[in-house]
């Protein structure tokens, strides 16, 4: 990332913070005070830091997967659904099938595989019939959400919790341990990000993905195997989403509840684009967004700003991030118009 795009990212974040700040004022809060509290609660408080890094881990794993497809110009908007379905598949290995002994490994592998298949289907439709992947992956998010509800409110519901629609807690043997006081997912996300970076920028496959993303015609003339590019990258991205979903289930929630996914798959779209689809940068943007996500809970408690407000922040930020690359062209266009 050169200095100019770094600065423009910072400016975009500041503009988005400013717009979100206007809404905090609308709800009677003081934006600077709110941002300070957010920062303190998310990064300086030990419990808050744990939560922030857990969220950062999930977001970074999701973003690492999305980086692969976004760099190839394939818009997988279905990370949310792949996350949920991966988690549910892992749930089947615990709640339904008895494998005889307790280990998190098999649920994780199954969760990754199923998450991967769930994104390979729209990818294959895109490869074979040129079906718009944005629409299909999005539809599958809704399908996944209802499948989650089917299990949480229905077949897996824990009868002992009375009113609460949650599934029973999984036993200790299935859980992922903390590492050095951090949730398992954060150290894991560093490894996943490095692997994704290696695939994307140091391997032949990643080179082809980037060529395909930059110039479809060039990829066709070079006789690249489009099946491995489209279906392969989508499957890898689904693999990562499935890992994040399974990881959150086994390391943090230990059960399913209706708010299990909480929109992380959508926020990961923003973290990926802010990080320019480079898995190392997306790791950094994930840590930032995780702090913001966790901190916005504090804002909604302290200043009464509804949680959905964060989407304003994300939307304005995205609008500026995608515009900055073109603003130069726009300025040139204005000049041409005047001359």
């Amino acid at each position: 990332m050169d200095i100019r795009s770094f600065l423009s990212t910072i400016v975009s974040v500041l503009v988005a913070l400013f717009v979100y700040g206007l809404f905090i004022m609308y709800f009677g809060g003081d934006p600077l005070d709110a941002y300070y509290r957010m920062f303190r609660n998310s990064y300086l408080d030990p419990n808050g830091l744990y939560e922030t890094l857990r969220l950062a881990g999930s977001l970074a794993i999701l973003s690492a997967g999305l980086s692969l497809v976004f760099k190839a110009g394939i818009w997988n908007i279905g990370a949310e659904g792949q996350y949920i379905i991966g988690g549910i598949a892992a749930g089947y290995m615990i709640y339904v099938f008895n494998i005889g002994f307790e280990t998190p490994v098999i649920p994780i592998l199954v969760g990754m595989l199923v998450g991967s298949l769930y994104s390979a289907v729209p990818a294959y439709l895109k490869y074979k019939l040129d079906v718009n992947e944005v629409l299909t992956t999005l539809m599958l998010n809704y399908v996944a959400l209802y499948i989650l509800y089917y299990h949480v409110y229905g077949v897996w519901r824990d009868p002992s919790t009375f009113g609460f629609p949650v599934t029973p807690e999984i036993s200790m043997g299935f859980r992922l341990p903390d590492i050095l006081g951090m949730n398992f997912l954060f150290p894991l996300s560093i490894i996943v990000s490095i692997v994704a970076y290696y695939i994307l920028f140091r391997s032949k496959y990643g080179f082809k993905l980037r060529v395909y993303g930059e110039n479809r015609e060039a990829a066709k003339y070079s006789r690249y195997n489009l099946f491995t590019l489209i279906v392969g990258s989508m499957a890898l991205s689904g693999l990562a989403s499935g890992l994040a979903g399974t990881g959150d289930f086994l390391s943090y929630y230990h059960r399913f509840k209706p708010g299990y996914a909480a929109g992380l798959g959508y926020t990961a779209i923003i973290t990926t684009l802010v990080g320019e689809s480079n898995p190392i940068y997306t790791l950094i943007s994930s840590i930032f967004f995780a702090g913001f996500l966790y901190g916005s809970n504090t804002i909604s408690i302290v200043a009464g700003v509804p949680f959905e407000g964060i989407y304003i922040f994300e939307g304005v930020l995205l609008a500026f991030i995608i515009s900055r690359r073109y603003i130069g062209r726009w300025v040139k266009w204005m000049g041409a118009e005047n001359s």
């Binding site: 509804p306 959905e308 407000g309 989407y311 304003i312 994300e314 939307g315 304005v316 609008a319």
Partner: peptide, 13 residues
């Protein structure tokens, strides 16, 4: 997508 997020955010707020 930016408009999607802004719209959801505005209606939520």
């Amino acid at each position: 997508l930016a408009v999607l997020f802004i719209g959801i955010g505005l209606s939520g707020l």
